[in-house]
Write a protein that binds this DNA or RNA. Structure first.
Length: 489
RNA sequence: GGCGCGUUAGUCCAGCUGGUUUAAGACGCCGCCCUCUCAAGGCGGAGAUCACGGGUUCGAAUCCCGUACGCGCUACCA
C-alpha cells in the first residue's frame, strides 16, 4: 500500500515550530517511503481563520522546502483541500450516521451546556455531556423546534474499550465510557474538528496520521467514528510536544516561535530543518548534522522519542552558524544583500565589482554570524564613515609606539598603488622592520584606528577590503582625535 | 475530578529484546592551543546517586507495581 500522509494546519495563526516539525516528520516519512505528502487546511473555525495565515503557512512551508504533491495551491484528484469547501461531504456522512441511529440531534444550547458543565465541575463530576437528548420524544423535538432552537448532531459513543495502536507509543487503551457523546456537526451546519478530520482523512485515502501528542486523547473518538462508518482507521503516530525553556508549551511568550520570524531573521532553511528534525528524533548513526537528503534517507518513525522536547534557541543558532560557515561565500553574500539594503549600507543595483567586494566582506565576517539579520551589525566597520574609538583604544593610541607604527603605515601606504591580499603581509613586515614593533604593539594600534574596537575581523581582511584611500582617510581622521587626547592630558 | 502520555547532566538525546557503559554524543559552560582582538577551529575538563519508593532477578537506567512532578484531552477550538 502506498503511503499517503497529510499536514493539516488550521489557518488561525502563523506556522509555529511545533507545526513545522509535524509537517517535517510527515514530509520525511512520505519522502522516505516514496509516498505522497498532502497539504490540507482545516478552516472549520470560520471566526478565527484568516486568508493571510493560510498564505503565510504556504510561504513558510515553501521556505523550508517541504513541497507537497497534492493540496493547496496545486490541487489534486482528492480535492478540494480546504475544509470550508467540503461542507456538503460532512453533512452527507452526518446524515448517514443519523439514519443508522449512530448519531442524534441535540437541542441543548451553548448556554445550557456551559451552565451544566460548571455545575458538574463544582460537584467534582465529569464535565462532559450527559447524553440527555439521546432519547427525545417527537413532542419534545417539536417543542424545541418551535422555540427556534437549532440542533447540533452528536455521535452516540458506544461503551467499550478503544485501543489506539500508535507507531511511537505502542498500544494505548481508552475507556470510551469516559468520552461523552460529542458533537460532529455544529448548529450552524459546520462540521466539528474530530468529524471533518476523519472524513477528510478517509476520503483522501490517508494511510498514516502523524500529528502532535495533543491529539492522542482525540484518537479514540476518531477511531469510534471510523468504526461506525465501517472503515479501517489509518495508522497513527503521535509525536511529543515542543516546550519553552520554562517547560510550558511553546508559545509567543517565549519569543520567536513562528517560522515566519525565523525566515525574516535569515535562518537558513537547511539549518532550521536539521534542528527541527533533532527535536524528538535521533539519527541512527548519531551524526547530528544532516542534509535534507540524509534526513530523508535515515528517518524512521520508530526512532521518534516519546518525551517532550525543550526548544533550544542557542543550539539552533549554533547550527545555523555552522551552515553559514559551510555554505558557499556566493550563496551567503547573495542572501545578505537584502539585509544590507535594509540598513542602507547598500543601495541600488549591485555591480559585479561591488559583488566581488561584498564576497570579501562576508568572508571576513561570517565566522561571527548566527543568522543573516546579523550581517549589518557584523559588517558595520566596512560601511560606516565615522569610527568611534573606544576608551581602551584611545589609551593605546596615546602610546609613542602606536604613533610610530601609524605614521610608518601612512608613509608606506602612500607609496603603494593599492593594498591587497598579496602585499598586506610584506607591508606589515616592513613596518615591523622599520619600527621594531611586532605582535600587539604593531597590530592593535592599526586595528583601533581603522575600526575603533578591539574585536572584529582579522586585519589582513580589513585593510584590503577598506582599500588604500579609506585606510588613509581613517588614519588622518585620527589627527584631530590625537589633539583632543593631548589636551585632556 | 476523570482519562491518557511522559520523566537519563542546564538543554537535545544514545542506551531498543536486563550483564564490557568507568552511562555515549551534541549545544551550552570552563580551561588550554592557534592568534593582533573577538569569533571560528583543534584539544581537554566539569556536569547524571538514570524523578522517587518498592518489587522480580545472581545482576536493572533497562522488566513489573505504586508515588510524585510535568504535559495533554475532557469545547457548538483545532
Amino acid at each position: 500500500m502506498r503511503v499517503r500522509v497529510r499536514f493539516a494546519p488550521s489557518p488561525t495563526g502563523y506556522l509555529h515550530v511545533g507545526g513545522a516539525r509535524t509537517a517535517l516528520f510527515n514530509w520525511l516519512f512520505a519522502r522516505h517511503t516514496g509516498g505522497t505528502f498532502i497539504l490540507r487546511i482545516e478552516d472549520t473555525d470560520r471566526k478565527r481563520s484568516a486568508d493571510r495565515y493560510e498564505k503565510a503557512i504556504i510561504d513558510d512551508l515553501r521556505y523550508l522546502r517541504l513541497d507537497w504533491d497534492e493540496g493547496l495551491d496545486i490541487g489534486g484528484k482528492y480535492g478540494p483541500y480546504r475544509q470550508s469547501e467540503r461542507f456538503p461531504l460532512y453533512k452527507e456522512y452526518a446524515k448517514r450516521l443519523l439514519k443508522e441511529r449512530k448519531a442524534y440531534y441535540c437541542y441543548c444550547t451553548e448556554e445550557e451546556l456551559g451552565k451544566r458543565r460548571k455545575e458538574a465541575l463544582g460537584r467534582g463530576q465529569r464535565p462532559g455531556y450527559d447524553g440527555r437528548c439521546r432519547r427525545l420524544t417527537e413532542k419534545e423535538i417539536k417543542k424545541h423546534e418551535k422555540e427556534g432552537r437549532r440542533p447540533t448532531i452528536r455521535f452516540k459513543v458506544p461503551k467499550r474499550r478503544v485501543v489506539v495502536s500508535d507507531l511511537v507509543r505502542g498500544e494505548v487503551t481508552f475507556k470510551a465510557r469516559a468520552l461523552g457523546d460529542f458533537i460532529i456537526l455544529r448548529s450552524d451546519g459546520v462540521a466539528a474538528f474530530n468529524f471533518a478530520n476523519i472524513i477528510d482523512d478517509m476520503s483522501m485515502g490517508i494511510t498514516h496520521v502523524i500529528r502532535g501528542e495533543d491529539h492522542l486523547s482525540n484518537t479514540p473518538r476518531q477511531i469510534l467514528l471510523y468504526q461506525a462508518l465501517g472503515i479501517e482507521p489509518p495508522k497513527f503516530a503521535h509525536i511529543s510536544m515542543i516546550l519553552g525553556p520554562d517547560r510550558a508549551r511553546l508559545s509567543k511568550r517565549h519569543g520567536a516561535t513562528s517560522i515566519t520570524e525565523y525566515r525574516k531573521k535569515g535562518y537558513l532553511p537547511e539549518a532550521l530543518v536539521n534542528y527541527l528534525a533533532l527535536l524528538g528524533w535521533y539519527p541512527p548513526d548519531g551524526e547530528e548534522i544532516n542534509s535534507i537528503e540524509e534526513l530523508v534517507k535515515e528517518f524512521s518513525l520508530g526512532d521518534v522519542s516519546k518525551s517532550p522536547a525543550v526548544f533550544d534557541n542557542q543550539k539552533l543558532n549554533w547550527m545555523d552558524g555552522h551552515y553559514i560557515r559551510s555554505s558557499s561565500l556566493e550563496k551567503i553574500s547573495d542572501l545578505a544583500i537584502p539585509y544590507l539594503k535594509e540598513t542602507g549600507y547598500l543601495k541600488g543595483r549591485i555591480t559585479q565589482t561591488k559583488k566581488k567586494w561584498l564576497l570579501k566582506v562576508i568572508e571576513a565576517t561570517r565566522t561571527h554570524l548566527e543568522y543573516l539579520a546579523q550581517v549589518p551589525k557584523e559588517t558595520e566597520v566596512f560601511f560606516t564613515k565615522e569610527i568611534k574609538i573606544s576608551k581602551e583604544g584611545k589609551e593605546i593610541l596615546k602610546q609613542e609606539s602606536s604613533k610610530r607604527v601609524l605614521s610608518t603605515l601612512k608613509n608606506k601606504l602612500k607609496k603603494i598603488k593599492e593594498i591587497t591580499d598579496k602585499n598586506f603581509k610584506p607591508l606589515m613586515k616592513g613596518i615591523e622592520k622599520e619600527t621594531g614593533y611586532k605582535g600587539k604593539d604593531l597590530y592593535l594600534p592599526i586595528r583601533f584606528v581603522l575600526t575603533g574596537k578591539n574585536r572584529g575581523p582579522e586585519l589582513h581582511f580589513i585593510l584590503p577590503i577598506l582599500g588604500k584611500k579609506e585606510c588613509l582617510r581613517r588614519l588622518s581622521s585620527l589627527e584631530g582625535l590625537r589633539l583632543t587626547v593631548y589636551r585632556k592630558r
